[in-house]
Design a protein around this nucleic acid. Structure first.
Length: 186
DNA sequence: CAAGAGATCATCT
DNA sequence: GATGATCTCTTGA
Protein backbone atom coordinates (compact mmCIF):
# COMPACT_ATOMS: atom_id res chain seq x y z
CA UNK A 1 0.00 0.00 0.00
CA UNK A 2 1.39 3.34 -1.06
CA UNK A 3 1.98 5.94 1.64
CA UNK A 4 -0.50 8.81 1.39
CA UNK A 5 -0.49 12.51 2.11
CA UNK A 6 -1.73 12.02 5.68
CA UNK A 7 1.42 10.05 6.44
CA UNK A 8 3.77 12.82 5.29
CA UNK A 9 1.69 15.48 7.02
CA UNK A 10 2.67 14.19 10.47
CA UNK A 11 5.45 15.76 12.52
CA UNK A 12 8.85 15.29 10.88
CA UNK A 13 10.24 13.32 13.81
CA UNK A 14 7.24 10.98 13.54
CA UNK A 15 7.64 10.54 9.80
CA UNK A 16 11.37 9.93 10.09
CA UNK A 17 10.83 7.12 12.59
CA UNK A 18 7.82 5.63 10.85
CA UNK A 19 9.67 5.51 7.54
CA UNK A 20 11.95 2.86 9.01
CA UNK A 21 10.81 -0.49 7.57
CA UNK A 22 8.88 1.14 4.71
CA UNK A 23 9.84 0.39 1.10
CA UNK A 24 11.25 2.79 -1.44
CA UNK A 25 10.35 1.79 -4.99
CA UNK A 26 12.09 3.12 -8.09
CA UNK A 27 10.67 2.19 -11.49
CA UNK A 28 12.66 2.64 -14.68
CA UNK A 29 10.63 1.40 -17.66
CA UNK A 30 9.69 -2.20 -16.83
CA UNK A 31 12.48 -2.47 -14.30
CA UNK A 32 11.87 -1.98 -10.57
CA UNK A 33 14.44 -1.43 -7.86
CA UNK A 34 13.08 -1.93 -4.33
CA UNK A 35 14.67 -1.27 -0.98
CA UNK A 36 13.64 -1.06 2.64
CA UNK A 37 14.46 2.12 4.53
CA UNK A 38 16.73 1.48 7.50
CA UNK A 39 18.12 4.94 8.38
CA UNK A 40 16.69 8.48 8.27
CA UNK A 41 17.33 12.00 9.55
CA UNK A 42 14.81 14.74 10.34
CA UNK A 43 15.33 18.37 9.31
CA UNK A 44 12.75 20.44 11.06
CA UNK A 45 11.51 23.94 10.43
CA UNK A 46 13.07 27.37 9.82
CA UNK A 47 15.03 27.34 13.11
CA UNK A 48 16.98 24.15 12.40
CA UNK A 49 20.47 25.46 11.66
CA UNK A 50 21.40 22.15 10.02
CA UNK A 51 18.60 22.49 7.49
CA UNK A 52 19.00 24.20 4.14
CA UNK A 53 15.70 25.93 4.91
CA UNK A 54 17.20 27.85 7.86
CA UNK A 55 18.64 30.27 5.29
CA UNK A 56 15.16 31.08 4.05
CA UNK A 57 13.32 30.34 0.85
CA UNK A 58 15.54 30.14 -2.24
CA UNK A 59 15.03 28.54 -5.66
CA UNK A 60 16.53 25.34 -4.32
CA UNK A 61 14.88 25.18 -0.89
CA UNK A 62 11.39 26.28 -1.88
CA UNK A 63 10.49 22.61 -2.29
CA UNK A 64 10.93 22.17 1.46
CA UNK A 65 8.32 24.90 1.92
CA UNK A 66 5.92 23.10 -0.40
CA UNK A 67 3.28 20.42 0.26
CA UNK A 68 4.20 17.14 2.00
CA UNK A 69 5.06 14.04 0.00
CA UNK A 70 7.30 15.71 -2.57
CA UNK A 71 10.85 14.57 -3.32
CA UNK A 72 13.61 17.06 -2.48
CA UNK A 73 16.82 16.09 -4.25
CA UNK A 74 20.02 18.09 -4.35
CA UNK A 75 23.63 17.64 -5.40
CA UNK A 76 26.16 17.72 -2.59
CA UNK A 77 29.95 18.13 -2.78
CA UNK A 78 29.68 18.34 -6.54
CA UNK A 79 29.12 14.62 -7.02
CA UNK A 80 26.51 12.95 -4.87
CA UNK A 81 22.75 13.29 -4.71
CA UNK A 82 20.75 13.23 -1.50
CA UNK A 83 17.13 12.07 -1.45
CA UNK A 84 14.68 13.73 0.94
CA UNK A 85 10.94 13.64 1.50
CA UNK A 86 9.09 16.86 2.32
CA UNK A 87 6.95 16.66 5.45
CA UNK A 88 4.39 18.70 7.39
CA UNK A 89 2.03 21.34 6.14
CA UNK A 90 2.56 23.70 3.24
CA UNK A 91 4.83 26.70 4.05
CA UNK A 92 6.49 24.94 7.00
CA UNK A 93 9.93 23.86 5.74
CA UNK A 94 10.79 20.33 6.83
CA UNK A 95 12.01 17.09 5.31
CA UNK A 96 13.37 13.64 6.05
CA UNK A 97 16.71 12.61 4.56
CA UNK A 98 16.91 8.93 3.61
CA UNK A 99 20.40 7.90 4.70
CA UNK A 100 20.43 4.14 4.11
CA UNK A 101 18.31 1.36 2.64
CA UNK A 102 18.40 -2.43 2.60
CA UNK A 103 17.91 -3.63 -0.97
CA UNK A 104 15.40 -6.41 -1.69
CA UNK A 105 17.97 -7.85 -4.08
CA UNK A 106 20.93 -8.83 -1.94
CA UNK A 107 23.91 -6.50 -2.32
CA UNK A 108 27.12 -5.80 -0.48
CA UNK A 109 26.42 -3.11 2.15
CA UNK A 110 29.37 -0.96 1.06
CA UNK A 111 27.62 -0.54 -2.29
CA UNK A 112 24.67 1.39 -0.86
CA UNK A 113 25.06 2.22 2.86
CA UNK A 114 24.93 6.00 2.71
CA UNK A 115 22.79 8.84 1.34
CA UNK A 116 24.97 9.41 -1.73
CA UNK A 117 25.43 5.71 -2.42
CA UNK A 118 21.74 4.81 -2.24
CA UNK A 119 20.92 7.50 -4.80
CA UNK A 120 23.52 6.01 -7.11
CA UNK A 121 22.04 2.53 -6.56
CA UNK A 122 18.43 3.65 -7.11
CA UNK A 123 19.40 5.94 -10.00
CA UNK A 124 18.02 8.99 -8.25
CA UNK A 125 19.02 12.32 -9.76
CA UNK A 126 17.64 15.81 -10.24
CA UNK A 127 15.11 14.70 -12.86
CA UNK A 128 13.13 13.32 -9.90
CA UNK A 129 13.40 16.54 -7.90
CA UNK A 130 10.01 17.83 -6.75
CA UNK A 131 8.24 14.67 -7.95
CA UNK A 132 5.06 13.81 -6.08
CA UNK A 133 5.73 10.56 -4.23
CA UNK A 134 2.01 10.00 -3.72
CA UNK A 135 1.27 9.85 -7.46
CA UNK A 136 4.56 9.39 -9.35
CA UNK A 137 5.04 6.26 -11.47
CA UNK A 138 8.83 6.55 -11.23
CA UNK A 139 9.40 6.74 -7.50
CA UNK A 140 7.22 6.14 -4.44
CA UNK A 141 6.99 4.56 -0.99
CA UNK A 142 5.01 1.57 0.21
CA UNK A 143 3.90 0.16 3.54
CA UNK A 144 4.24 -3.62 3.43
CA UNK A 145 3.10 -4.14 6.99
CA UNK A 146 6.53 -4.45 8.49
CA UNK A 147 6.38 -2.85 11.90
CA UNK A 148 9.58 -1.71 13.58
CA UNK A 149 9.22 -1.65 17.36
CA UNK A 150 10.37 1.56 19.03
CA UNK A 151 12.79 -0.53 21.08
CA UNK A 152 14.51 -1.41 17.80
CA UNK A 153 15.01 2.24 16.80
CA UNK A 154 18.33 3.87 17.67
CA UNK A 155 18.31 7.68 18.03
CA UNK A 156 21.55 9.63 17.64
CA UNK A 157 22.79 12.99 16.44
CA UNK A 158 22.84 13.75 12.74
CA UNK A 159 25.87 13.21 10.52
CA UNK A 160 27.91 15.87 8.73
CA UNK A 161 26.24 18.96 10.19
CA UNK A 162 28.77 20.07 12.83
CA UNK A 163 28.48 23.61 11.48
CA UNK A 164 24.96 23.91 12.93
CA UNK A 165 26.02 24.85 16.46
CA UNK A 166 25.93 23.11 19.86
CA UNK A 167 22.15 22.75 20.04
CA UNK A 168 21.10 21.56 16.60
CA UNK A 169 24.17 19.45 15.95
CA UNK A 170 23.49 17.48 19.14
CA UNK A 171 19.75 16.89 18.83
CA UNK A 172 18.94 13.24 18.29
CA UNK A 173 17.25 13.50 14.93
CA UNK A 174 18.95 10.55 13.24
CA UNK A 175 17.10 7.25 13.42
CA UNK A 176 18.13 3.77 12.36
CA UNK A 177 17.18 0.14 12.85
CA UNK A 178 19.33 -1.46 15.52
CA UNK A 179 21.89 -4.00 14.28
CA UNK A 180 20.99 -3.53 10.63
CA UNK A 181 23.99 -4.21 8.41
CA UNK A 182 23.12 -1.49 5.90
CA UNK A 183 23.27 1.57 8.17
CA UNK A 184 25.71 4.26 7.03
CA UNK A 185 28.02 4.55 10.03
CA UNK A 186 28.35 3.50 13.66
C1' DC B 1 43.03 1.07 12.29
C1' DA B 2 42.31 6.42 12.21
C1' DA B 3 43.05 10.82 10.32
C1' DG B 4 43.50 13.84 6.47
C1' DA B 5 42.93 15.36 2.01
C1' DG B 6 40.99 15.51 -2.55
C1' DA B 7 37.29 15.15 -5.93
C1' DT B 8 33.99 18.48 -8.16
C1' DC B 9 30.03 21.74 -9.02
C1' DA B 10 25.33 23.77 -7.92
C1' DT B 11 24.06 27.12 -5.01
C1' DC B 12 24.23 31.31 -2.59
C1' DT B 13 26.87 35.72 -1.29
C1' DG C 1 34.48 33.46 -4.15
C1' DA C 2 33.22 29.99 -0.55
C1' DT C 3 30.97 26.07 0.83
C1' DG C 4 28.71 21.59 1.51
C1' DA C 5 22.77 16.76 4.95
C1' DT C 6 29.46 12.62 0.90
C1' DC C 7 32.61 9.24 -0.30
C1' DT C 8 37.11 7.32 -1.53
C1' DC C 9 41.75 7.08 -1.38
C1' DT C 10 46.29 7.74 0.79
C1' DT C 11 49.26 8.00 4.60
C1' DG C 12 51.24 6.38 8.67
C1' DA C 13 51.53 4.00 12.93
Amino acid sequence: MRLNKQFYLQSTEQVAQQLLGKFLIRRIGQHKIEAQIVETEAYIGPQDKASHASKGKTPRTQIMFGPPGQAYIYLIYGMYYCFNIVTEKQDYPAAVLIRAVQPVKKEKPELINGPGKLCRYLKINKTLNNKNLITSKKIWLEDRNINIKSSQIVKTQRIGIDYSGPYWSKRKLRFYIKNNQYISKK
